[in-house]
Simulated scan of single mutants.
Amino acid sequence: MNTYPAEVDIMEKNLAQGESKRIFYLDFARGLAVFFMIMQHSMIMHERTSGGGDTLLGNLFVLLGTAPAAPVFIFIMGGFAVRSKKSVAENMIRGCKIFAFGYVLNLLRFTIPFSLAGNTGEAVPLLFMVDIFQLAGLSLIFFSAFKKIAEHAFILPAFIVGILLISPYLWGVKSDLYIFDPLWGAGANNQFPIFPWEVYFLLGM
């Protein structure tokens, strides 16, 4: 059977896409979400605090980096987690690394600078801030633990509904123990607790 050059090109492209297992529009959306979250943090931490970032463009970055960016990022992460061929152990290790990286980032961007500036009162609480990395890491850990049972038709919707129903009762729960902050709470430094943000990861699955 003769194969024309154009057909060869198409076959090679399809093969390359199959091997890379990437979905362009999801990667693009995730990239935009990351970009806007970075810009949002920059505006809040530097521009707006110095009084020079309260502009239309600055507020636009803050808006896009807050409301749509984080849900989109976690939603897409859930979709990629389902398609992943990694083992349960590999996913759990990766989740632990992402979770730990969130605190390393807090140390570098908050605790050390605040300590050097003499503001030790905020240095320690900010070390335990729950940001997007803690949420992403815990989501991947929980997904790995419950992946098998989540394959049943009614289990995943039940988890989603359960989280939505339980979360309002946990938002006001405060504890002096920082270990509970990634799970629930409404503290100023608790940006992305599992309840209710885990819902977006599950919806992506």
Rank of each mutant, 00 (worst) to 15 (best):
Pro157Asn: 03
Ser144Leu: 03
Tyr169Leu: 13
Phe142Val: 07
Ile155Tyr: 10
Ala16Thr: 07
Ile76Ala: 00
Ser144Arg: 09
Asp181Phe: 09
Ile179Asn: 00
Gly95Ala: 10
Ala186Trp: 05
Tyr178Gln: 09
Phe195Trp: 03
Leu57Pro: 14
Leu165Val: 09
Val161Ile: 15
Trp197Phe: 14
Lys85Ser: 11
Ala89Ile: 12
Val34Ile: 15
Phe28Thr: 05
Lys147Asn: 10
Gly31Phe: 10
Phe201Asn: 10
Ile10Leu: 15
Thr111Val: 03
Asp9Tyr: 05
Gln134Tyr: 01
Pro5Trp: 00
Leu105Arg: 12
Leu108Arg: 02
Phe101Cys: 05
Arg109Glu: 13
Phe24Gln: 13
His41Phe: 01
Val124Gly: 07
Lys148Tyr: 05
Gly95Trp: 01
Gly78Phe: 00
Gly51Lys: 02
Val173Tyr: 11
Ser144Lys: 09
Leu107Gly: 15
Leu57Gln: 04
Met39Phe: 11
Leu57Ala: 08
Val130Lys: 06
Pro68Ala: 03
Lys97Tyr: 04
Val104Ala: 15
Tyr200Glu: 10
Tyr25Lys: 15
Trp171Asp: 13
Gly51Arg: 01
Arg22Asp: 13
Leu26Pro: 14
Leu116His: 02
Gly187Ala: 06
Thr3Ile: 07
Trp197Lys: 08
Lys13Gln: 13
Ala100Gly: 06
Phe192Lys: 06
Ala89Thr: 09
Lys86Leu: 12
Phe75Cys: 06
Glu47Ala: 12
Phe133Asp: 13
Thr55Val: 00
Ala117Arg: 14
Ala136Asn: 03
Leu26Gln: 12
Ala123Ser: 08
Leu57Arg: 02
Met43Glu: 13
His152Lys: 14
Pro168His: 04
Ile74Leu: 01
Gly172Ala: 02
Phe35Tyr: 13
Leu140Gly: 14
Arg83Ile: 04
Phe101Glu: 08
Val124Gln: 03
Ile166Leu: 15
Pro71Ser: 05
Met39Val: 05
Gln17His: 14
